[in-house]
Nucleic acid binder design. Structure first.
Length: 502
RNA sequence: GCGGGUGUAGCUCAGUGGUAGAGCGUCACGUUGCCAUCGUGAAUGUCGUGAGUUCGACUCUCAUCACCCGCUCCA
């Protein structure tokens, strides 16, 4: 198998639409930038990935519990977390070379000093000007710059049944104002009802630390896990569902004793990368990359990215960050509520006495559920060259999804639509329904086309009712990857598939 | 945000200043009966959207939206 990397995304996007995995949002209205809908098969795949994550992170562990928090939280949450201040960096456009940059990271000059810079249209030409601000364009050095505009990371909305714009209109009516005054009135009025869509699920797990720890009497180390939607106004959206403004996260905050964070970071980074590999056909396409110091977020003292080799190169899939005690401390300060843990067994390292109250340190494996969906689709996409029944060359498209991730686990197929075969097939598929194993009955067109279609959507097993079934009560089970079949009895069909899904 | 490309049937794509085609897929009937069977027949298009030029625009011009590639940016 060898697919041109450049074609892979295109083929996958096409398959996603054709077979009902992913559609563009609001397509009949021309689509909306970076928004996608998960179709009948896409939702199954994404949900399976998320369920597997939940199972391995929450259900299979003694000390990790779940949370499903409100997407809209008290606006002060984002003040305390730093999302309001550190993500509203002023952005400036260079009027000359069109570069967009952060004012606080641009080259510093003295206001009023004469600066020389190059003309982007004619590199040999030198221009002179006077700096009106304390910085110039980092690319061409020009002082000809647009106004500073705040970068808008979070999606804003307004809570309350009265439109705050009416209040603004009332205040401004009948007088003349300059831009600054209008802005101030608007900010003052809008602020009263402004709420934000969460840019990460993490904060709710810090904010509910006390409730969760106390209600379940949890002992450090313990973790809180959450899956759900998050929203960010990304500077650039790209690569299909890879980076979009609305996305889905699977995050876990692991609270541990100060001083043990390095050990736990090490543990979780290995756990997480191995989790991805266990469902993959190409585990070598997953790797860990430690962040350089200058890459670290304001809250982290160490961080590993789990990266995947996408068609466009290595890029992020999950971040495993050591967030120190930053978040709990910030929310403690912001809310005036103690977010600490008291360990009666431990010895206070400062006093040497038994009993230690401390702010736990946090290790956070933060995964993109939507990114994982893309990754497993890319990992599974496969074209196999072969010959058809008449010896003509053809290619078989197979999604080699891990059986537990596959949207449909089993297709139940009557070889032909007569002689009672549909009835037997339907009675088999009914047993699967009742056992909670995703199965589909399919009697369309020819048997060959049905196999091919199920290969293309990743169905790992096909059960076929044929003439022999009528005689001895056996059916065939076909393996997606090898296309090999073996005969089993109708009674064993469900348990056989269940065994293979383990 | 910048540069380049694309947008025509469900998918892949052809096409011409005179109101549109192929292959695949879909549906029906018949046939076949285990890997995209064969035959016959059928349905499906705001030619991304809006404006302009023109007697006439899918085709030319402009704007806009979306996607792809590259840069840039990104806690």
């Amino acid at each position: 198998m060898s697919i041109q990397e450049s074609d892979l995304m295109q083929k996958l996007i096409s398959l996603c639409k054709r077979r009902g995995f992913v559609f563009q949002s609001s397509e009949i209205y021309g689509g909306l930038k970076s928004c996608y809908d998960y179709g009948p098969l896409g939702i199954e795949l994404k949900r399976n990935i998320m369920n597997e994550w939940w199972r391995s992170m929450v259900h299979e562990r003694e000390n990790i519990v779940g949370l499903d928090a409100s997407i809209i939280m008290h606006p002060q949450v984002w003040q305390s977390s730093g999302h309001l201040s550190s993500f509203s960096d002023p952005l400036v456009d260079c009027l000359l070379c069109k570069e967009r940059f952060r004012a606080d990271k641009a080259p510093v000059v003295e206001v009023g000093s004469e600066v020389t810079y190059t003309d982007p249209k004619n590199k040999k030409k030198e221009l002179k000007g006077v700096a009106e601000r304390s910085y110039v364009c980092p690319v061409c050095g020009s002082p000809e710059l647009s106004a500073e505009r705040n970068f808008n990371l979070m999606f804003k909305s307004f809570m309350g049944s009265v439109d705050p714009m009416s209040q603004v209109a009332d205040k401004l009516a009948g007088k003349s104002h300059n831009a600054q005054e209008i802005r101030e009135v608007m900010e003052e009025e809008l602020a009263k009802s402004t709420v934000y869509l969460r840019p990460e699920t993490a904060q709710a797990m810090f904010v509910q630390f006390n409730n969760i720890q106390q209600s379940l009497s949890l002992k450090v180390p313990f973790g809180i896990a959450q899956m759900g939607k998050s929203f960010r106004n990304e500077v650039t959206v790209e690569h299909f569902i890879f980076r979009s403004c609305e996305f889905e996260q699977m995050e876990m905050e692991f609270f541990c004793e100060p001083g043990t964070q390095a050990k736990w970071l090490d543990y979780w980074k290995e756990e997480r990368v191995n989790w991805y590999k266990s469902y993959a056909n190409y585990p070598e396409k997953f790797t860990l990359r430690q962040h350089d110091d200058d890459e670290l977020a304001h809250y982290a003292d160490n961080c590993y990215d789990i990266e995947y080799e996408y068609p466009w190169g290595w890029d992020e899939l999950e971040g495993v960050a050591s967030r120190t005690d930053y978040d709990l401390k910030k929310h403690s300060e912001g809310s005036g509520t103690k977010l600490t843990y008291f360990d009666q067994q431990a010895t206070n390292p400062e006093t040497g006495k038994p009993g230690w109250r401390y702010t736990p340190f946090v290790i956070e494996p933060a995964a993109g559920a939507t990114r994982a969906t893309l990754v497993y689709l890319l990992d599974a996409y496969c074209e196999e060259k072969g010959v058809d029944a008449k010896g003509k060359e053809k290619s078989r498209v197979v999604l080699k999804l891990h059986p537990r991730l596959a949207p449909i686990k089993t297709a139940v197929l009557p070889l032909v639509k007569k002689d009672g075969m549909p009835e037997i097939a339907r009675s088999i598929v009914d047993k699967f329904y009742k056992a909670g194993v995703m199965a589909k009955y399919d009697e369309n067109t020819s048997i060959g086309k049905r196999y091919a279609r199920h290969d293309e959507i990743g169905t790992p097993y096909c059960l076929t009712v044929d003439k022999q079934t009528l005689e001895d009560g056996t059916i065939t089970i076909r393996d997606r990857d090898t296309t090999e079949q073996k005969r089993i009895s109708v009674e064993d069909a469900l348990s056989e598939v269940q065994a293979r899904l383990q």
